[in-house]
């Protein structure tokens, strides 16, 4: 019971995080917390096999799948916090709370029979008991789940498959396109410059410096730009900010070095690396 009372608040709070987290990654992490806690509760409830499966399948596989997809598609989407459907939040809250109240006060309290416990069922071990059930009473359902899994795999393949309508460009095509772009718009035909070259930090959010010391924005990955984790400012802006900071009489040790170029400040939601 101790485990329950420790885990339950954590789980509820983490589940709340699912509702309130701004970023999808945070929501995914909250969900992972709930699942791990659930796994522990399974263990406490005499279900060691489900404990393992919960950790391996849910936390290990399914959550990873979520994170992969987030990485694929979630980066450039913004989840606006403005509700567009009128009254949706209020109604959802009202209905949801009523639902919870009814369930926990009505249904959960109505269970009154004594707890039998799994001592007898798990006499030969939980795994043995489960297996004997799965392969006798539930063998048909088990076989059906096998078919379901295969269909799911096929379905995922079909859905994720992108039909190619034209032949893929060959190396020669790509090279010709690069040269044509260069001829028409002056686009650099070679590799994009690597971030961090000649800069003080060798980090992805630090643009490379040209030989004359000016930063090269193209060296920053586009994803960072679209996430607004990177901004390019000109020297005047930087100097103005530096002046403000100095005027604020910041501790000299903490004061960032500002006089030197590049006049670049990587920007992000966090404060880290605000100015180097």
């Amino acid at each position: 019971m101790t485990a329950f009372w420790i885990l339950a608040p954590v789980m509820v709070l983490a589940a709340m995080g699912l509702i309130f987290a701004r970023k999808a990654v945070h929501a995914a992490l909250c969900l992972a917390v709930v699942m791990i806690c659930l796994a522990m509760l399974y263990a406490a409830q005499g279900a060691p096999f489900l404990f393992a499966v919960q950790i391996i399948v849910y936390t290990g596989a399914i959550m990873m799948l979520f994170l992969f997809v987030l990485m694929l598609v979630g980066v450039e989407t913004s989840d606006s916090i403005v509700e567009t459907i009128k009254g949706q939040r209020v109604m959802a809250a009202v209905v949801g709370v009523l639902f919870a109240l009814l369930l926990s006060l009505g249904v959960a309290q109505s269970v009154s029979s004594a707890i039998v416990g799994l001592g007898e069922a798990n006499a030969n071990g939980n795994l043995h008991g489960l297996a004997s059930l799965l392969f006798t009473d539930y063998v048909l359902a088990f076989e059906f789940t096998a078919a379901l899994m295969i269909v799911a795999v096929l379905g995922a393949m079909v859905l994720a498959h992108r039909e190619r309508l034209v032949a893929p460009p060959t190396q020669a095509d790509l090279q010709a396109r690069r040269m044509r772009d260069f001829a028409e718009s002056g686009k650099h035909p070679g590799n994009a410059p690597t971030p961090g070259v000649f800069a003080r930090h060798n980090a992805v959010d630090t643009p490379a410096l040209l030989p004359d010391g000016t930063p090269l924005p193209e060296s920053i990955p586009g994803t960072l730009v679209s996430r607004h984790q990177f901004e390019l400012h000109d020297a005047d802006d930087v100097n103005r900010v530096v002046g403000e900071i100095e005027a604020a009489d910041v501790d000299p040790d903490e004061r960032p070095v500002t006089t030197e170029k590049p006049d670049v400040r990587p920007a992000s939601d966090t404060d880290e690396g605000e100015s180097k």
Partner: peptide
């Protein structure tokens, strides 16, 4: 009872999440 109550609380929180979140991935979670 407390296990069931926790279960139903989690269920309701999930349902509310489905209703209020707009990111399809979070809805899925």
């Amino acid at each position: 009872t407390e296990y069931l109550t926790l279960s139903m609380l989690l269920f309701s929180i999930g349902a509310i999440g489905v209703l209020v979140r707009r990111n399809a991935i979070i809805v899925f979670m």
